[in-house]
């Protein structure tokens, strides 16, 4: 993390607060704090906030707020950050079917790491994964914190279509395809939960700064929850992350 946050001009209607030049939980926590602080302050003329790995983009309307006013307001807010009480990040449980047709590459992952399929699932479900940011496709989470024990290189030749909800591994990253798209990740499972549903009241399930945890389900459990997922009433289990516990794995 930089000693002094960089305020960078990003066009005449956005500025970037850059907190560092690496991917770290510490920086992400600061971004989350700043995002909450700005949202709470409700600064007139701030249009939209986009948190990313190591920075926060603040879109603004210069016809409503002058650049210098915005700059000093943000700097003052940053000074006060320590005094702001942050709610604990949420952990969202993602029910996941592992292996078989749902995760055709799980044996590749097991073999690559000299583990059994069971051990891969056990390792993958034990982690709490920080959502650094969303992007690539609507609702796609860039996750951190996967155990290197199950790291596996991408497929040599990417698939042309991967079903939305597919859970995969690429190198030391894990992720969930939010919509049908091409891709080269090793697929180990699939969640019936929709990360992106344009007709839902909240079209995007996840939010940067929160965590996800995968929970293994079987066919029987899938059949039980399928109707409520389909009619939009299913709610993923979510709870505040225990503070000070660090990231498992």
């Amino acid at each position: 993390m930089y000693n002094k946050t960089k305020y960078l001009i990003a066009g005449d209607r956005a500025l970037v607060m850059e907190f560092g030049n690496c991917i770290s939980e510490e920086i992400n926590e600061k971004i989350r704090a700043m995002t909450i602080a700005i949202e709470t302050k409700n600064i007139e003329g701030v249009v939209e906030l986009v948190p990313t790995y190591r920075s926060l983009m603040v879109h603004y309307n210069p016809l409503i707020i002058e650049y210098t006013v915005l700059l000093t307001t943000l700097q003052a807010l940053e000074e006060e950050l320590e005094n702001i009480e942050l709610p604990a990040p949420q952990i969202i449980e993602i029910p996941t079917l592992y292996g078989g047709d749902y995760g055709p590459d799980i044996e590749t992952v097991a073999q690559h790491n000299a583990l059994t399929v069971e051990e891969v699932i056990q390792t993958h479900t034990s982690g709490e994964y920080l959502i650094y940011m969303l992007g690539f496709t609507p609702g796609f989470p860039y996750l951190g914190g996967m155990d290197k024990k199950i790291a596996t290189p991408r497929l040599q030749s990417p698939r042309t279509k991967i079903k939305g909800g597919s859970v995969g591994i690429a190198g030391s990253q894990t992720g969930i395809y939010s919509i049908d798209s091409p891709g080269g990740w090793q697929l180990i499972g699939w969640t019936p939960v929709k990360l992106y549903d344009e007709n839902a009241e909240k079209p995007i399930l996840l939010k940067a700064g929160n965590y996800i945890k995968f929970k293994e389900i079987d066919e029987k459990e899938y059949k039980r929850i399928a109707p409520s997922i389909n009619d939009g009433t299913y709610q993923c289990k979510s709870y505040p992350k225990a503070q000070g516990g660090g990231v498992i794995g």
Binding site: V47, E48, L49, V50, P51, M57, H59, L134, G135, F136, T137, P138, G139, F140, S178, P203, I204, L206, K207, A208
Partner: peptide, 9 residues
């Protein structure tokens, strides 16, 4: 579409 860039839209 304003307000959804943080969700990757």
């Amino acid at each position: 579409r304003k307000g959804y860039q943080q969700y990757g839209v």
